[in-house]
Design a binder for these strands. Sequence first.
RNA 1: GUCCGAGUAGUUCAGUUGGUUAGAACGCCUGACUGUGGCUCAGGAGGUCGUGGGUUCAAAUCCCAUCUCGGACCCCA
Length: 464
Amino acid sequence: MASPKPRSFKGTRDFTPREMIPREKIIDSMKRVFRLYGFSPLETPALEMLSVLTGKYGEEGEKLLYKLDYKNDDFMNRVALRYDLTVPLARVIASHPEWPMPFKRYQVQPVWRADKPQTRQGRFREFYQCDIDTVGAPEGLADAEILALTVTMLDDLGFKDGDKRAIVQLNHRKVLEGICVYAGHPREDLAGFCRVLDKLDKIGREGVVSDLIDMGINDEGIDRVDSLLKLSGMYGSLSSTPADEKIDHVLAILDNNQAATEGLEGIRSILQSLKELGTDLSRINFNPVLARGLDYYTGAVFESTLPGQPHIGSLTGGGRYDKLIGLYGGGDKPAVGTTIGLDRMFAAMEQLGMVDTEAATVTRVLIAAWSADQMSACLQAVRVFREAGVPAEVFPTTGKLKKPFSHADKLNIPYVAVIGPDEAGNPDGLHVSLKDLSQGTQETLQVANAAEKVSSTNRSAPSS
RNA sequence: GUCCGAGUAGUUCAGUUGGUUAGAACGCCUGACUGUGGCUCAGGAGGUCGUGGGUUCAAAUCCCAUCUCGGACCCCA
């Protein structure tokens, strides 16, 4: 019987050590920032009751749910893989009404979506999201903190300058509602209207205008929307206009629309808090036509993209969802948060050459015995390295030293420590011959001194 | 869900109007090197040409089907 070729499910990947090492580094640095802002860790199950997930993501999102087809046909007991981390959070909050508010959590776990994967665009069927949310705080500071954290995070990871510069875009659902009414489009189809506006960066101003005409919006409405498209910041002279000034522009255009006015005031207060938090406001672009797809947003919406890498979708995305938690009973609780797309950021970093994939192992010293007689000396030595905090391992076979050296070279292990009769039998105690593979230099010294030397030299910085 | 393109060694690919035993580079293994990697040199292993059918004296090559992968939409992280 021929065994079938092993392969992984489409849209899922294995992460090799070469990828996991930089990946864990990124996650660690993100978690550190989350904690600095007062967010605490939370995890939820991969499986959710189907009824918890349905009706939250809109028609498009719903199609992407992985529903589990197992023996139970009873709808009430059916199960699906989680689609995001926001809805599970809402469920957790709704089932713990006694928790003190505000509640701030971060969560780093995979989610699953049944759409067509496209690697270059950083889209997969299984991918990691890093969510931060604040529940139980009104619009303002909480929203600003999420944005401040997002900017800090992106800068930390290197998405700061030139073609690597990420831009955070900010808008408010109520502004969109105002624009929809102003264009003369029925409010019931706000979602459809938003979808067209949202395509601005992909199909351009002419594309949006022609789509709006197809929707049945008249000439006057088109002119009105067009005057706002110019303020998107996606192109043209107004792209560098300060947000305050743009808010005034939009306010002047939509001044007798109550929803828009409220939305603009919301944006203004978020920007004020951001300023006081010390965030560089030039990283934030107020874009009155930014829409975003998910149905549950009610207030501010935001996302960050790489204008230099348009094929990669948004790196982060989030917003305020004041009505979602109330759907599970117990009354509404306001909430705001963002998702940081780890895999998409990683894909972008790989394509931009920002990832160091040199190291295939975490081991820093490989210990090799000249002959079987020195094996026990090797075990003694590896213990010394480990106690000094140096990741070390013993090459398991003896024979030609070419093998352990070649192995170390292939995995980019920086040091090899050889123990032969001379080192093991040194009257001053156990010695090793420590070779620095990148320099090609070697010296024989006490094990403890070798461990000291290795732990004091940092791994060389990644070449750019 | 819609529209394109591609499947040949572990990887990236070449392979003429259909014609002997299907090639290269890199990688891998062995040796030159019985206390030492990278560089060099010599040798070696590795392929049912995605799968199934058809045309033909003859198919990696032409035709059909199918599967898989990649890209562009839609949507999103």
